[in-house]
Design a protein around this nucleic acid. Structure first.
Lengths: 128, 128
DNA sequence: TTGTTTGCAAATCATTTGCAGTAAC
DNA sequence: GTTACTGCAAATGATTTGCAAACAA
């Protein structure tokens, strides 16, 4: 039996906020931002919607620094994480993800997605 | 001032267990296994030692499925995660990590490590 | 009308921390 | 002898859940 998803104002506000930024915010941060538009929204609603959207493949759920971070950009790209300022920088290059997926097939694995994280220091922090 | 690390029996038991498996266990799982050898060891000690070893680069700390998983193999390799049985399979191929690190430098990023996760289904689960 | 979604509060679960005693060096 | 490390218990912090009311379809 197919569950019908309803497009609520909360869902719309969360997705619209997430599409407007490139900062990979946490659920808590999304909550505080969306609260400006919908003051009565609850944190549980934010979590529920983010999980649903991630499940449906509309957004990415990244596990970083002990909490989840979300990204409305679902194209094949890498995330560079600065260990000093904790900033997450996108690196748009689909070849790495594609290559990683191809190579994983050797062992009979059937990949659906690749997540590539680079740890290091960003340009600003390297030249502090 | 340099802090001197002491090699305790707890530390030795944790590292020795982790080196004996290729299953990327969680802290809780490592705790229950090491407890067989050291019945009085506490979960806090396991967490403290795993964090220290990861900090010192002796083991890898992987953020997966809402908890940390640990790996005594620090060579450049990828992790394939089966979304059905949750198994983590190693894919030893350093070229992907090296390529990902090289490409991240384009934006002035200074990478120290690459973490590559493949989501999909393993051989067994694909042919269930 | 219907059944999904909401806000709230309480619950959960992994991980961390304070502290006084213990043991590695 | 010094001081890093331990076990214990309590604290923390992110995320989830139960429930009755609200609202999208």
């Amino acid at each position: 039996m197919v569950v019908k998803k309803r497009l609520t104002k909360q869902k719309r506000a969360i997705l619209s906020y997430l599409k407007s930024v490139h900062t990979h915010p946490s659920a808590e941060h999304i909550y505080s931002e969306v609260k400006k538009e919908l003051p009565l929204i609850s944190l549980a609603t934010v979590y529920r919607n983010l999980s649903q959207m991630a499940q449906d493949g509309h957004i990415l759920k990244l596990e970083l620094e002990g909490e989840y971070h979300f990204d409305a950009d679902v194209s094949l790209h890498q995330h560079c994480i600065c260990t000093k300022c904790k900033k997450i920088i996108d690196n748009h290059d689909s070849t790495i993800s594609i290559l990683a997926m191809q190579k994983s097939k050797i062992q009979g694995f059937h990949p659906t997605r690749a997540q590539v994280f680079l740890q290091g220091t960003c340009f600003e922090c390297s030249n502090n």
